[in-house]
Write a protein that binds this DNA or RNA. Structure first.
Lengths: 419, 419
DNA sequence: CGGTTTTGTTCACCCGCTAAACTAAGAAAT
DNA sequence: ATTTCTTAGTTTAGCGGGTGAACAAAACCG
């Protein structure tokens, strides 16, 4: 035993700051200024926006160009007086983030470059419910391998990779504790994938959280706040506050599907009862509607529809009426669960993704009614568009996973430049 | 209309970084290292813990001592070999944060110095439900005035002030939208207080959130994560993640009291029905128990009791039995609401404060049962002590408000040193 | 075609951190 | 008691990196 040490409990060297860290901070500043601009910007613009001198901004941009994180475009006369600017933007096709996804009904791989452009993508539709995790990971690896090869052939450097999983995974250890919809339990998922795919900086994340990341990217506003609700076999939520993902202490945040809607409700696979999934999960809706599949097949269409897909023009049809009733029930339950989330977390906007995006027209009346009744702050921030369908890509979670991988470059360009 | 501006949407000078900001960063580092140490530390300790050289640490500490944020203690031989260290710690009685609180049944004012020591405090117990806000603010100002005078007389500099309110206040504007338990509505509370008290840097915050801040301070762990549940006339929650308060986009987070427990439940003053407050709010418990006041009068005792207060030895007593039943119902409802919060936000620990701290023994069985049933990640992080009573001060919200004011010094000592 | 305007670079300067030498002050060894 | 060892804190030279001003480049304007 040591004598009482006054420094006990002090973290060792958490954020020491020499000039190197100053440089690194400013590189990030320059990078993010370029990334967040709507169009290519000049060095002078960057200096102005970031509060640096033109000299410094120039030196930073040069370093970023040198490391092929940023590319210069041709000088073009702007029409205004003065020397024309050299526009710079994030480099295309030089550095990639790889997204991987294991969901209940498909596997997916997607590679995005720094600018968010799709370099390659693969999807394999298969029912993974009750499948063997080892086989699923093998399939995923087989799906990813040609993507990696193509990146290597095109001399694209892989900055990192993220695996999106339809279940709560521990951010630190990569362990999946329990995914009732996959039928998997207590699994070292990250280790399993690492054994099959040698990827740099492989991280894991929740499907809904990463889908929210993709939704954020599709918005103009880099400071947006919203809950993304992913409706599918399970129901997950991704929470974004001021442009930052919220994933909790362990990465288990967003388990909206197992929020209690009715304490006397039917039992759930999670062990509890009356969970939201028992009212608004895909099989609950299908059972209530007496259908085998949902209308407006979600596979081909982009998620950002206007919401008029689904039961359009089928009024009067008894099938449509049953679906209508099922969706009303789902909307009511979703409203009860979401109102709790909003009251607790002060969220301004609800974005409906997955099945919910297609069926928003049927879902919305009951959902809005419950929110209006139960959200304490309803109407207090009148500028916010409270409920809207997702505007992001078709398979948002893989896309978000790839973006999350790229985010690690954006968060510390200096670390990347240092190889 | 401008021509399409490429810099449109870019924030202007958000975090420019010259050498000044490096200095400021390191001052914060040094300050926080001193603040988080369990006992006085030497300049060499600071250098080691913060990853700085002894020369830099020395210079930083000197600046902090110069600005009377930090004080040197007498050199004392440590017993070990080598030159004995000069211990430094946060200065006592030089700089204060002022906490103000408007709650349903009292007004309070508290002044803390940088080390968290109480310089002065006042409480005035009055029923403010349905009162005139202007009069309440006047009373608060009268309570605060002698405190300010005393600080001035003792040459204590006031770094800032925070007002804790038992209701959702907009962090940015200081507006209170609706506090059903006070009977106040759509009120420029911050403006009202500013007109009565000329305070530097006056901010507002939610009572439960600020109470959580005080709870955090009473813990050893500066990186703790928990929900603080404030049980009183209303029920609020304060969320702390890795030592940081979560208050949402506007500051309205933590409205646990209006989370729906039963969608078919009794109507609530908030306009909804089946809210947690209808089951676990003070009046709901009193009504269900058939009592006029709760046992173990909360006024005098500290919140950090062992939980054996309340109905101790009253088993068999019909009054006690009624209380027992009421608390079971409250615990069940609290468990339903909290399980949703935990599933959504991935929180490891629940801290029960206010009435709930005293009555924890009666509350716990039903509460734990519901949590165990409904929290998806129950038992996954076995190290965490899941439910425990508050260990903080008796009136945590004022204390937290004062701490929040001090936090602004800790977050940027350089700004304070520059007057 | 010279004057204006804006971009981007060059250069002298300065600030703040680093490393290493140095001084200070105690304990341990001889 | 003196020397040696050890740790704390200061001094000083050096350096990385940002600043600001001057300058060169490249457009537009009258």
């Amino acid at each position: 035993m040591l004598k009482s040490d006054p420094t006990a409990g002090l973290a060792t060297a958490p954020g020491s700051a020499g000039q190197a860290s100053l440089r690194s901070h400013n590189l990030r500043l320059a990078y993010q200024t370029i990334a967040q601009a709507a169009a290519p910007v000049s060095r002078a613009d960057i200096a102005g926006a970031a509060g640096l001198t033109r000299a410094t901004a120039s030196s930073l941009v040069d370093a970023l160009v040198q490391g092929s994180l940023v590319e210069e475009l041709d000088v073009r006369a702007s029409g205004r007086a003065g020397r024309p600017a050299t526009p710079v933007r994030l480099a295309r096709g030089t550095v990639a983030g790889l997204g991987l996804e294991i969901n209940v009904d498909y596997l997916a791989v997607k590679a995005l470059d720094l600018a968010g452009q799709v370099l390659d993508e693969r999807v394999q539709w298969t029912d993974l419910a009750g499948s063997d995790p080892t086989q699923a990971v093998l399939d995923l690896a087989n799906l990813a391998r040609p993507v990696r090869r193509r990146l290597t052939a095109q001399k694209v450097r892989l900055a990192g990779a993220t695996l999106a999983v339809a279940g709560p995974v521990d951010r630190a250890t990569g362990r999946l504790r329990s995914a009732p919809n996959l039928g998997w339990q207590d699994l070292d998922l990250l280790g399993l994938v690492r054994r099959r795919l040698r990827l740099p900086e492989l991280k894991v994340g929740n499907e809904a959280t990463l889908a929210a990341r993709a939704e954020l990217a599709s918005l103009g506003d880099h400071q947006a706040s919203f809950v993304y609700v992913s409706g599918g076999v399970g129901i997950g939520a991704g929470i974004v506050q001021h442009g930052a993902l919220y994933s909790g202490s362990h990465g288990w945040a967003g388990e909206l599907g197992h929020v209690t809607v009715d304490a006397a409700g039917p039992p759930c696979a999670c062990g509890s009862n009356g969970c939201l999934e028992q009212y608004a999960g895909r099989s609950a809706i299908l059972t209530a509607a007496g259908l085998a599949t949902l209308p407006a097949a979600p596979r081909a269409t982009a998620a950002g529809g206007t919401g008029d897909a689904g039961a359009g023009g089928l009024e009067g049809d008894p099938t449509a009426q049953a679906l209508h009733a099922a969706m009303s029930q789902a909307g009511r339950a979703l409203g009860i669960a979401l109102s709790g989330a909003i009251n607790l977390m002060d969220l301004n906007t609800v974005v409906l993704g997955g099945d919910f995006a297609h069926l928003i027209r049927l879902l919305l009346p009951a959902l809005r009614q419950e929110l209006e009744l139960r959200v304490v702050s309803w109407g207090w921030a009148p500028d916010d568009q409270f409920v809207r369908p997702a505007a992001g890509p078709a398979l948002p979670a893989v896309a978000g996973a790839a973006l999350a991988a790229i985010d690690r470059v954006a968060a510390n360009p200096a670390a990347y430049l240092a190889q």
